[in-house]
Design a protein around this nucleic acid. Structure first.
Lengths: 358, 358
DNA sequence: CTGAAAGCGCTAACAG
DNA sequence: CTGTTAGCGCTTTCAG
């Protein structure tokens, strides 16, 4: 059995109250007593029992992070940043994966960990905001990604419409006209893909180009293989051959690059490619990938801030926050710009910058 | 305040004991009573308080996963697999990153979460097994990676010497002789790099090739940029120009590929490249990357199994386990083999297979 | 400045 | 089959 406050108290010849005070510095203790207690603490190697502490405090110090998958570069990086931001607040993160499945999202929301965590950060794919808000119950929740018509919960995201618009404009500016959009996901409820599609179409229309449904290729996932298949379909479908692709994720874009290479299509000469997410692989791809770079550190930071606001002042009925995080377009070789020197990524040419507010 | 057992008991007109029985199915309850209690449970939306439950049980149901970094493809994938393996056992995973720093490793081991978790899975970089074992104290611990001379704790790893030997032999078999090793890490204490270096040298010697120190390039990290710099140093250092590279991680190998491309060096014609880890990026790289593929799912599964054995039978003084997990060599384009069709990775040609035991 | 004791929500030993 | 109750380790109110 681990040593408890009582053991320490007995050893030091004081009451548990005093030991507790020394441990937490909550009240003033005489120098002599503190020293004696400290010695007992050290000798016994005392560790507070967090379960007991949580039971008293009503808080656990844990936050749940629910994401589709940990092994994808984007979510891996984001998860790392959330963990760090949490550490700064002395919180601990519990990570769960849903694989984008509705039943998993439901289960994680209400079932397994809901009772244990003080708050939940969730990046939904399958579930709509309505169902999410309803199921979360009393646990404070932050939504990552864009879809919350009713403003039911806090949420943090980039301006997907604007970002997609900029990415498309970047291609238009380079003289491309048959720009394909790889990434619509009809089956998903989170709305991110819809918004990127809307931004894409808006940029086209503003440039006097009529969106061509044959150039909008839906995908089942955001992974490379899906991007590769989409690209193959574009080339073999008998429709217009694109001179550019806006992919809704860097991974899709990397799949597109793969097929382009297999078919002997020159990038960027014959085909310009823009991705979304700014994952590390894109910087080292061949050619390096132009992309929309969301400020992931800020996504993590602000999501945690939202949670902190609610956890530490449960009474204050603040209305759900809608936070827009900055993004920027990073132009690289896949659209005819220079690769950054030595691949450090530090000197990427920045094509556009955008700042977000609440 | 969340509804407690007492609330439900009051509502159903029974005692807490009975409610507890219904919730846990721990004793037999009459059909009528069960039904009434269940209704109250549903109406009040009862959720057990895990802090209280843990306090009683002396277990928290949490395991800690301590890894250098979450955003690297290898650890991201591994973390995902650990989370899944844990889910199968109704355990929850807390993930922490050390960035390979000794102080972080120490802090996480003894400080922040040690008291809260039932067990710890740690992939050490900076700390040696001795210090790890000493600091972990009573918390069951599993080491990931290879370095535990004193058999102080359970540990799970591939046979790094053998794997490196096979990788090097694969290059030798292709007729290469000036094979560079990119990846020794003199500063680290976990020993993985040392073992891969040993396997590399062993294969060379057995083939009658004398290891050339000028071809062994140390790196500060396992990332792409480090691989790129190492490759540049190999080419510009004035030493022998390699005709092959064995990189100790896929990321390093991808950095090597990048520089090869920049310098107009043909892969695999002029330079054959083998990596280690089998991360997804390698499958989609250009050219696709030959690599040593550790069975990551099994690493996760067996690590958790070790923990379970100790957590559920604390009395049984089983000696520390030393578990070797299988790996296989996956031959792809970077050593002159065929890319798998459509990049699915399912039909990779397997160059060698190896099975591990305890 | 320090001690005694209540009680957080739950489980399980003990009674009935 | 069900009720009562002690106690897990801690914080904190109330006394002293």
């Amino acid at each position: 059995m681990r040593t408890s406050l009582k053991d320490v108290a007995a050893r030091a010849g004081v009451s548990v109250r005093t030991v507790s005070n020394v441990v937490n510095g909550s009240a003033s203790v005489s120098e002599r007593t503190r020293e004696r207690v400290q010695r007992a603490l050290d000798e016994l190697g005392y560790r507070p029992n967090l379960a007991a502490r949580s039971l008293r405090a009503g808080r656990t110090g844990l936050v749940g992070l629910v994401i589709p998958e940990l092994h994808s570069p984007y979510f891996g990086e984001l998860a790392g940043l959330v963990v760090e931001a949490a550490q700064r607040r002395s919180w601990t993160v519990i990570i769960d994966q849903t694989h984008g499945r509705a039943d998993e999202e439901r289960r994680l929301l209400e079932g397994t960990h809901a009772p244990i965590v003080d708050g939940l950060i969730i990046s939904p794919w399958a579930l709509g905001a309505e169902e999410l808000a309803e199921r979360a119950g009393a646990t404070p929740m932050v939504l990552l990604g864009e879809r919350d018509p009713g403003r039911l919960a806090d949420h943090v995201a980039v301006d997907n419409v604007l970002a997609a618009d900029e990415a498309t404009r970047h291609l238009l500016d380079a003289g491309r006209r048959r720009i394909a959009a790889v990434g619509p996901q009809p089956g998903l409820r989170n709305g991110t893909a819809e918004q990127r599609l809307a931004g894409y179409r808006r940029a086209l229309r503003r440039a006097g180009v009529t969106p061509d449904p044959a150039l909008e290729v839906p995908v089942p996932t955001l992974h490379r293989a899906a991007g590769a298949r989409a690209m193959a379909r574009l080339l073999d479908g008998g429709g217009p051959v694109p001179d550019a692709v806006f992919a809704f994720s860097d991974e899709l874009a990397l799949g597109v690059l793969l097929v382009a290479r297999e078919r002997g299509i020159g990038v960027p000469e014959d085909l310009a490619v823009v991705g979304f997410d700014d994952i590390e692989d894109g910087r080292y791809a061949n050619p390096s990938l132009t992309t929309v770079s969301p400020d992931k550190a800020q996504i993590a930071e602000r999501a945690l801030q939202c949670l902190a606001d609610r956890v530490y002042s449960p009474g204050a009925a603040v209305p759900p926050q809608r936070i827009t995080v900055p993004h920027r377009l990073v132009a690289r070789e896949s659209t005819g710009h220079a690769r950054s020197p030595e691949g450090t990524g530090s000197a990427d040419r920045v094509g556009g910058a955008r700042s977000g507010g609440v």
